[in-house]
């Protein structure tokens, strides 16, 4: 029988800070922004991600929704990390984050941690398998919004 890792691994200070003081809350007018909605049918968490893509740059991000500390902190950290980044970089970050969530045994590499910045504080989630979906909800929803932005007509800046 494996024992649960201590809760401090999950609820790190920086995670709790993003939960208590979420960044980039609100909505953006659509269009020009793109909106995607995600929900976790198991626990009822819901999130809407608004992204404004100008050229290949994500110039603004806003979030609405409700959920547990992990889903809320993860979405807040994501919004802070991708704002001002190129779409391609944001997609790379999504891939890196998902790697972090599935890396159960191996510790993430130095490079990966540097790239992720404070988001690496969510690495403890991977030790709590039922919570991984909470952490990835915002990131999957972001991917939907970016896909939508890329397949539709280019927006006027």
């Amino acid at each position: 029988m494996t024992q649960m890792p201590p809760l401090n691994d999950l609820y790190r200070e920086i995670v709790m800070d993003h939960y208590r003081t979420p960044r980039n809350r609100g909505e953006l007018p659509t269009p020009p922004a793109r909106r995607a909605d995600g929900h976790n049918p198991l626990c009822g968490d819901e999130i809407s991600v608004f992204v404004l893509v100008e050229g290949d740059l994500i110039t603004d991000v806003k979030l609405t929704g409700h959920g547990c500390s992990i889903s809320q902190a993860s979405s807040s950290m994501m919004s802070a990390a991708i704002k001002g980044r190129r779409v391609e970089e944001a997609r790379e970050l999504v891939a890196r984050f998902k790697d972090l969530m599935t890396a159960e045994s191996s510790e993430p590499s130095e490079d990966a941690l540097r790239e992720l910045g404070e988001i690496a504080a969510l690495s403890g989630v991977s030790k709590f398998p039922v919570r991984i979906k909470c952490a990835t909800l915002a990131w999957n929803t972001l991917t939907q919004a970016l896909d939508d932005a890329e397949t539709s007509e280019p927006q006027q800046g």
Partner: peptide, 28 residues
């Protein structure tokens, strides 16, 4: 405290409670 977090903290003390909509979404 979100129910998911309540359940997570309680689990640390061996306490099993159920978070969620309990398959009764219209009631929720």
């Amino acid at each position: 405290v979100h129910p998911h977090d309540v359940s997570q903290v309680l689990d640390q003390y061996g306490v099993c409670v159920r978070p969620g909509h309990h398959c009764a979404k219209p009631l929720m």
